[in-house]
Each structure stands twice: as structure tokens, then as C-alpha cells.
């Protein structure tokens, strides 16, 4: 069958509708409740050119912080008005290999003092002009879901019907160590929770509670303020 101008217009209209629906679906998200607290022990501040490194606490200590979350925080605090220079995590670990691997990583400031007594280690910190180590702990969990949804496909098309929901909880803590004085300057905790919904009348419409993305943004903003002093 030959495409007439009317059918072409109709196809274009359908494409526009699908695009609009996709954008709307992706931009929709459900509510998230947030709590950020900081506990300052010492005074902080950054001199010109000084930087930070963001590391996850060891999984040997039961920590499950997602690699994506570390990347997100690193990226967020190195952007914006009061951005901070961040040494990439993998580059830092490779430069100091094997002293920041999950098994060897210092678990407290006393262990860091012992590690810094190695000249090669302290030289790397000086060459990289590193002032703070930010340790991340925590993760995002999905739990407490409910509802039901069924989908079917037939010769004339398909569709879903039902309603499902689940709980998302993102709990993270950032601990800030000053490498110059080798002391713990304090910590910031971030708790974000929300319920994701997925109603379906023919087409499922996901309404995600983006707790991890919001925890990343919230924690990064607070870290910038904390480090600035």
C-alpha cells in the first residue's frame, strides 16, 4: 500500500504521542521523605588546589555501598558553584596499591597514621595534594512490596492490568578524615525513603521513588557545605 500524505501525518502524530507518553512516564516519580544530619567534630576547609577522594568502606566489614553511588557522589561534588576537586577512586587505589584494597584499607585514623609512616604512601598523598578522605557506608534496599499485576498478549494486541508497590530505603553515611592532621572531622548521615507505585490499565505506568538519586544529591550538597567549613 502506498503512503498517502494523510497516513504519513497520522504516523507522525502517533510517534509524537508515544514520545510524549515516554517523556511523561520517565519524568513522573513518587514522593520521597528525606533526613540529613551532620555531626561535626573538628573544623574543616580547603586550600587552593587541595582535593578529596571518595572511598567505600570495606566489604569485609559488611558494607555494600554501590559503585554507582560512589560515582554519583564523586561526580556531584566535583560540579556546581562550590565544586571540590575529586581524585578518581580507581586511580587513587591503583596509585596506592595494595594499601587501599578492601582487606588492607585503614579502618580508623590510627591505622592511617601507621600507613602514612610509609614514605611511598605519604609521597602519593602529597603529590596528589589530597586533604580529605570521604568514606561512604550504607546502601539502597527495596522491601515491603505488595499488589498484583497480570499481563496478556493476544492476536489483536496485549496489555496489563493491576497495581503494585514497593518500599525503597536509601541509608548512607559519609565520614570525613583530614589527611593533613590525620583525624576524623565528623560524619553526615542521609536517610531517604519512599514508596514506588506501578498502576497498569493496559499500559503499566511506573512511578519510581528515586531515593538513591536523591540521597546522592542531598549527601553531595551537604558534603560541599561541611568541607567548606
Amino acid at each position: 500500500m502506498k503512503n498517502t500524505p494523510i497516513s504519513k501525518e497520522k504516523t507522525l502524530y502517533q510517534y509524537k504521542l508515544i514520545a510524549l507518553f515516554t517523556i511523561l512516564t520517565l519524568s513522573l516519580s513518587s514522593c520521597v521523605t528525606a533526613r540529613i544530619e551532620d555531626n561535626r567534630i573538628g573544623s574543616t576547609g580547603l586550600e587552593e588546589g587541595e582535593g578529596v577522594v571518595i572511598l567505600a568502606k570495606s566489604y569485609h566489614l559488611g558494607n555494600d555501598t554501590e559503585t554507582d553511588f560512589i560515582k554519583c557522589v564523586s561526580s556531584s561534588i566535583s560540579k556546581g558553584a562550590s565544586r571540590i576537586r575529586v581524585v578518581p577512586t580507581n586511580k587513587f587505589k591503583d596509585l596506592l596499591f595494595p594499601w587501599f584494597e578492601p582487606r588492607t584499607v585503614p579502618s580508623d585514623t590510627k591505622s592511617l597514621t601507621t600507613l602514612m609512616a610509609r614514605k611511598q604512601v605519604s609521597d602519593i598523598f602529597r603529590n596528589q595534594n589530597l586533604r580529605y578522605i570521604i568514606w561512604l557506608d550504607g546502601n539502597t534496599d527495596s522491601s515491603g512490596g505488595g499488589g498484583s499485576m497480570s499481563c496478556a498478549v493476544g492476536p489483536n494486541g496485549g496489555g496489563c492490568f493491576g497495581f503494585a508497590w514497593w518500599q525503597n530505603d536509601s541509608n548512607y553515611e559519609a565520614t570525613i578524615w583530614d589527611v593533613q592532621d590525620i583525624k576524623n572531622e565528623g560524619n553526615i548521615s542521609a536517610e531517604f525513603s519512599g514508596t514506588s507505585f506501578m498502576p497498569a490499565i493496559v499500559i503499566p505506568i511506573p512511578l519510581f521513588a528515586r531515593t538513591q538519586a536523591k540521597a546522592c544529591k542531598g549527601l553531595s550538597d551537604q558534603l560541599k557545605i561541611f568541607i567548606a567549613g
Binding site: F97, P98, E101, R103, T104
Partner: peptide
């Protein structure tokens, strides 16, 4: 690869 890096750390220790 992380397990291999862990082995390196253990052997050095």
C-alpha cells in the same frame, strides 16, 4: 579481578 587484587594484598602482607 578484585579477588586477584586481594590475593596480591594478602601475599604482600
Amino acid at each position: 579481578i578484585l579477588a586477584m587484587r586481594d590475593a596480591a594484598a594478602l601475599i604482600v602482607l
